[in-house]
């Protein structure tokens, strides 16, 4: 890890209790979702991480608390460094702060996450579905939505299929 990145990581570890992990050269910091706005603000203003490269979610279904992790990837062009931030999100009340005020391109990434995972972003200016039609029920990239084609519905098994299929709340 280079000096610049090390300073940033140290600061976040100390001030925001970030959990550092490293895999195949990727530096990942796990922080609580209430700090994400502050941490991004500091990383952008003081450590020149001026690009939000990517924002997405991994769903660890059956693990209740926390069920999701939002993955942010920031890039500093000046130092050519990348840092990953992960924030755990609970299953019961999936919401977190929106980064649109810091990185304007978070807009569509967050709309996509809302669309496909059903995580709400507080402070997002336009949280509509992005990819799916607006009347779509559920959030298909959640792990409890089946991947494979469903069993054919007949009158005798219709209710059974519905019972076995947890649907995400809108």
């Amino acid at each position: 890890m280079k000096n610049h990145l090390q300073t940033a990581v140290d600061l976040i570890q100390k001030k925001y209790n970030g959990e550092l992990s490293s895999f195949r050269g990727h530096i990942t910091l796990l922080i609580k979702s209430e700090f994400i706005l502050e941490v991004c603000q500091i990383l952008r203003d003081d450590f020149s991480f001026e690009v939000l490269v990517d924002e997405t979610v991994v769903d660890y279904w059956r693990r209740k608390e926390p069920r999701f992790q939002v993955v942010y990837q920031l890039h500093s062009r000046q130092h050519d460094e990348r840092i990953f931030l992960r924030t755990p999100i609970s299953e019961d009340d999936p919401n977190t702060s929106s980064l649109v005020s810091i990185y304007p391109n978070a807009n569509w990434y967050e709309r996509e996450i809302w669309d496909l995972f059903g995580i709400r972003f507080e402070g997002h200016p336009d949280l509509r579905r992005l990819l799916l039609p607006k009347g779509w029920e559920g959030h298909p990239l959640r792990k409890d939505v089946p991947i494979k084609v469903e069993e054919t519905r007949f009158t005798f098994n219709n209710d059974e299929i519905d019972r076995g299929k947890p649907r995400a709340e809108n």
């Binding site: 895999f23 195949r24 990727h26 990942t28 490269v53 990517d54 997405t56 991994v58 993955v71 990837q73 990348r82 990953f84």
Partner: peptide, 20 residues
């Protein structure tokens, strides 16, 4: 177990894959 991200330069820009 783990997650990797690999970016390449596609004709349109940075194409990245996050595999967990």
């Amino acid at each position: 177990k783990g997650a990797v991200y690999v970016p390449v330069s596609s004709p349109r820009g940075e194409l990245g894959v996050l595999l967990e």
